[in-house]
Design a protein around this nucleic acid. Structure first.
Lengths: 206, 206
DNA sequence: TTCATTTTTGACCGTTTGGTCCAGTTTTTA
DNA sequence: TAAAAACTGGACCAAACGGTCAAAAATGAA
């Protein structure tokens, strides 16, 4: 049985390192990030980082797996018994909110996937695919029941992912293009309204 | 006046290096790419690369600027005098086609933007913003003329970008999730149909 | 206080990387 | 065909990087 002794200092420092690592990995990617950067961001020495983690890779993988569950959760709650319009907009809203509140986590995954997902390939083909498959069945049922127009459930999910995560992953591009006098909140409100209009009009039969 | 002497060998080799650089930069990002990788991919020695280009950064920036025009072109042809439904679907189709035919270019930009766009920040705020502003006026006119439902033109464009580029940038995720017995062409056909349904239903008033 | 344990850090190491140099080879030109 | 120009590649360099280590500093139990 593994020892369970984790002191307060250990938890504090591990947490500080993970925070700093998220900051650095999400903006520079795995290869672009350096331990020195993480150390400086965490205000700790490089050696101390290796006292708490065995390697750079280990920090990175810890980050990915730790963030993943939270990342998938919104899709998990998609419920067949709810109203399709409500359920879909709830999903869009939650994903959009995550892009606003934790864009770094989004960019962390985006980086990993764009580089070929070498560390989470099994998850993509495993639990992620399984979850998406499940939810696609639900969407297909809605379609069969005449509650939604006929689209490919898979590509609908991709479309929701893309449209919402865009605001996290391509934040600097969005910021460059929308009027600089527009506040962050207002930008997300407009995004929400646009997504609501397009998805609900686009998917609900009349 | 600058010299214009470019031999056949120069053009050939520069082109081969650029091809290899696109391959490597798009999969590894700027920082993750190494000159050795590019050299090996181009089947040329590292020194030869530095004979044709002064630095790694210069190769990268050349690639970005060279690919950029082609990248923006589909938006340029969006025409106010055309039918809104046709124009928007033409735009979606072309962007989707580019994601299929040249995903590496898409990932090159995605990487650059996700890392804060240090090399194309001026373009983002300059010609890109200007182009988007122009086209948003057209979309707003369509809305004012009652030809489209009321949405934010900016966020509509973001949505089209996101939904189409997703298939290039997150290719491995898409491949992991869609049925492996589905061919690439079929996948893009289904994507096209789904985007068509959602955007046209979502945007056209009735 | 004493002493063992945990934590921190600066110095150091081997490898990788962007980039240089130059001697040699090929291609162009006259 | 021979000189000049363009081109190639192996040896090399300095900086940056991931990671190690031992000694010092902080912490905690008696």
């Amino acid at each position: 049985m593994a020892e369970k002794k984790t002191t307060r200092i250990q938890r504090q420092n591990k947490h500080r390192i993970m925070q700093a690592a998220l900051e650095v990995f999400s903006t520079s990617g795995y290869r672009g990030a350096t331990i020195d950067q993480i150390a400086k961001t965490a205000k700790i020495s490089k050696s101390s980082i290796f006292y708490y983690f065995p390697s750079k890779t280990e920090i990175y993988i810890s980050l990915l797996t730790e963030t993943l569950e939270e990342w998938l959760e919104p899709l998990r709650v998609l419920d067949h018994d709810g109203d399709p319009a409500d359920e879909i907009m709830k999903y869009v809203d939650r994903k959009l909110q995550m892009s606003r509140d934790n864009p770094k986590a989004s960019r962390l995954f985006a980086n990993e996937i764009m580089h070929g997902a070498p560390n989470i390939s099994d998850i993509l083909h495993g639990s992620l695919k399984q979850l998406v498959d499940e939810k696609c069945v639900i969407i297909q049922q809605w379609i069969d029941e005449g509650k939604l127009v006929s689209v490919s459930p898979y590509h609908l999910i991709f479309m929701i992912w893309a449209a919402t995560q865009h605001y996290a992953d391509f934040e600097v591009q969005v910021d460059a293009i929308v009027d600089e006098c527009m506040g962050r909140d207002q930008c997300f409100d407009e995004a929400r309204e646009t997504l609501r209009t397009v998805f609900l009009n686009g998917l609900l039969p009349r």
